[in-house]
Every structure is written in C-alpha cells, then in structure tokens.
C-alpha cells in the first residue's frame, strides 16, 4: 500500500477534527505491520501539527494566554522544565523557538569557542 493511500486513510480516520477510535481500529485491523507503522506515523504527525508545545521554566501563564490568543485553532500543551532556569521554549511543528536562559548561556559558550579556536 503506498504512502498516498495511507494518507487518505489517515484523513478518513478523523471526524469533526477529532480522531475517531472506531474508524482508526477498523483501518488498523486491515493493514500489514509495515503499513500500520506508517499509518501510525502519519496520524502522529497530524496530531503533532494540531498541537503547540510550550515548556516554561517557572510555569509562566502569560505566554500560554498569548499563544492561545494567536493560535485559536491549536491545542497548547504546557510542560515545565526548571533546567531552563528562566524563559520558555515553544515547539510548533518542526520549529523550536528557544527563549530561555539555558540556551542563551549555551550560545555564549558556542560563540566563544568559534571565535577563539
């Protein structure tokens, strides 16, 4: 089964923008192991595209509110990671926006390494 057909099946698994369990299992029963793996991958990618992952250092609510306002049709999934010290990280599809102190310090180190080699 080719990728285009599996994509069509993945689109057909959704009802009203949500993944329909009955349809998904019905399709999964009829797929080979290799095709099922590909089908799951496509569904995961679709789910990821619907979400925005916000990781904050100190549980900042303001950023979450702003993102909800800008991306009305997306789900905002919030995590906390204190190793970032300050700031946040936003993941939208393939793009990761680093706005935290840990990344800033790593940048400084990289800059010094590059300029003083």
């Amino acid at each position: 089964m080719n990728k285009t057909f599996l994509k069509k099946l993945a689109i057909a698994s959704y009802k009203n923008g949500e993944l329909d369990q009955k349809t998904a299992f019905k399709i999964a029963d009829r797929l080979s192991k290799k095709d099922l793996k590909q089908y799951i991958r496509i569904i995961k990618a679709s789910e990821k595209a619907k979400n925005i992952y916000l990781t904050t250092a100190l549980g900042d609510k303001n950023t979450e509110k702003q993102l909800k306002y800008i991306f009305k049709d997306k789900n905002i999934i919030v995590n906390q990671d204190s190793s970032m010290m300050l700031g946040s990280r936003i993941e939208i599809n393939d793009d990761i926006f680093e706005m935290n102190l840990k990344n800033t310090l790593e940048n400084i180190i990289e800059n010094i390494d590059q300029n003083n080699d």
């Binding site: 393939d94 793009d95 990761i96 680093e98 940048n107």
Partner: peptide, 13 residues
C-alpha cells in the same frame, strides 16, 4: 556578548 545573545534561536528539527 550582546550580539551573540540577542534574538530568539530557532531550531528546525
């Protein structure tokens, strides 16, 4: 130092 830290770093993964 400022020039190396300004702006948001965007990674494409």
């Amino acid at each position: 130092l400022g020039s190396s830290t300004s702006g948001v770093k965007v990674e494409h993964v």
